[in-house]
């Protein structure tokens, strides 16, 4: 199996602070990979580095082609999508416009021509993506009138609408209750099964361990464990580092979360 997205020795420093140190992550074709770790572990930094928002050393490859050094727009156009921890929707636009402005990848001169002739056309995919995430009814609502949970879903839809090769989701379930979170998990699985590779960052252990094919665990900017969910769940390094409590207690919580998702 070929990796759709991979990083090799990816490192990021903020001033003197090493936020990421030699991180190798691989997201294969048709795979859903979880990226977890305690607060400040560097998960968001990894996504920022991969998408070109912070300067990083090391290599990032998309479909085998190196994209290190490319600006964010070019990476997005090469098939890399992302969402943001704080949703970051386009608040001046409606939900549908949020999706179509992202999905429309035509060159600028075509758009200028459209403005001059006054003709409008919507890119394909927009309606189906809204349906896929179950937010069809929100299509004509202004983005700044949504609840936090809805904003996260629209953010996911906006990342998916252009039909990317791979998307990185930063805490899409924050702001959802556990039932909503489980429903989101199923929808994400559907997306992955339709052929989009995915990297999922979330603090909801039930969600991540429940739906992911593989899980990578970060702590202080380093990978401390990687593998299938059931292996990672049993890894004592993870239980200790991740929750920072007595190992047994955290084991109980991890087990409980596994039962919660019905796996």
């Amino acid at each position: 199996m070929t990796a759709v997205l991979e990083t090799r020795a990816l490192s990021v420093s903020y001033g003197g602070v090493r936020a990421l140190a030699d991180v190798d992550v691989e997201v294969g074709e048709g795979q859903l990979v979880g990226l977890i770790g305690p607060n400040g572990a560097g998960k968001t930094t990894w996504i920022d580095a991969v998408c070109g928002f912070v300067p990083a050393t090391g290599e990032t490859r998309l479909d085998g082609r190196t994209i290190s050094g490319m600006p964010p727009t070019a990476r997005a156009r090469a098939g890399l999508g992302r969402t943001w921890q704080a949703a970051e929707l386009f608040d001046d636009l409606t939900v549908r416009e949020n999706l179509s402005v992202a999905a429309d990848r035509r060159p600028m001169w075509r758009l200028v021509g459209e403005a001059l002739t006054g003709r409008e056309s919507d890119p394909p995919n927009v309606e189906s993506t809204l349906e896929l995430l179950g937010i069809g009814e929100l299509a004509d609502v202004a983005a700044d009138e949504l609840t936090q949970g809805q904003r996260k879903l629209v953010g996911v839809a906006r990342a998916l609408a252009p039909g990317p090769r791979v998307v990185c989701l930063d805490e899409p379930a924050a702001g959802l209750d556990s039932a909503e979170s489980r429903a989101l998990g199923q929808r994400l699985r559907q997306v992955v099964d339709s052929g989009v590779a995915m990297l999922l960052v979330d603090h909801d252990m039930g969600l991540v361990l429940g739906v992911c094919d593989r899980v990578v665990v970060l702590e202080f900017g380093r990978v401390i464990a990687a593998g299938p969910p059931e292996v990672v769940r049993r890894d004592p390094k993870v239980t200790e580092a991740y929750l920072g409590r007595a190992a047994q207690e955290s084991q109980a919580i991890l087990d409980a979360s596994a039962i919660g998702t019905g796996t």
Binding site: G81, E88, F90, L93, M108, E114, A115, E120
Partner: peptide
């Protein structure tokens, strides 16, 4: 011309840039 720009995709791109430059870049908008 200005009203037509606002109605079309170009206007949406402008508003996206106005709302959030980073998110616009991540959405593939130059």
């Amino acid at each position: 011309l200005v009203a037509s720009v606002r109605r079309g995709r170009l206007g949406q791109q402008m508003l996206a840039v106005r709302s959030n430059e980073s998110a616009a870049a991540a959405a593939g908008i130059s």
